[in-house]
Design a protein around this nucleic acid. Structure first.
Lengths: 125, 125
DNA sequence: TATAAACCCTATAGTAACTATAGGGTCAAG
DNA sequence: CTTGACCCTATAGTTACTATAGGGTTTATA
């Protein structure tokens, strides 16, 4: 059994983040003996690892909450993953388009020596 | 001169968003005659177009505010743009890595017929 | 044994960039 | 002269936390 500080350290999480997940109902309530200090077992550590990994895949906390309750409904989990994949792919192509625009813009800046005029600012007008 | 509603409509912005930009000091204060209704001229419309375009390039409102005051210091504008470009490129490669992970994961799901087990959920544990 | 450092608690505010709501006032048309 | 469409300010809600204030508890040291 660990206190919140030890748990946070071992999982590389902020203490406040763990309390926040508790408030949001993402992890089960830890036992709170006389002192009022939270005591954590491996079960909750596992829930926190799950949350951390799912977050790295781009799931929101709301989605993670339902992922955790879906448990083994693979079809539903797969659907959510595919939706996430579609969003990621869209973001990638948006950013690639953006990258091109900014590259072009900054290039016009290099060739400019006029101190009273900036082509980037001009492009935004 | 337009009222806020007409301006919002012509720029495809939410009325509240315009008031929000005003509170944040991103646009100049419109005149407010007797009625108290804001009256907008082309200058402010131009500022709003500038903000919209800069936002599309991924600049934050804070950055846009300084972009607007940099005016024609091209070197400074170029620096900010290059920083933004670096961030965009990092985001792209992060998302591409993520895409691969999710593709692999969802593929393990397709080949699974066991209703008591989900390989995606398992990978997150 | 006393006390101080290190830890824990709750509750609240702040972050970004809005959006939505409550509870009003004003204006134009019928 | 009233109805509907518009405007006003101020405040709360969104996401996923982080930080702070103002306390209480536990542990280590003198």
């Amino acid at each position: 059994m660990k206190t919140i500080g030890k748990l946070a350290q071992s999982l590389n999480l902020n203490v406040e983040t763990i309390r926040f997940y508790e408030r949001e109902g993402l992890i089960t309530q830890p036992t709170k003996p006389i002192s009022g200090y939270r005591q954590y077992d491996e079960t909750i550590a596992g829930q926190l690892r799950f949350i951390t990994k799912a977050k790295m895949l781009g799931f929101t906390l709301k989605e993670i909450k339902s992922l955790m309750s879906m448990d083994n409904d693979c079809a539903q989990v797969e659907l959510l993953s595919r939706q996430k994949l579609a969003i990621i792919r869209e973001k990638i192509s948006d950013l690639q388009r953006l990258e091109k625009v900014i590259v072009d813009m900054t290039n016009t800046c290099i060739q400019n020596d006029d101190p009273t005029y900036c082509p980037i600012i001009d492009a935004l007008k």
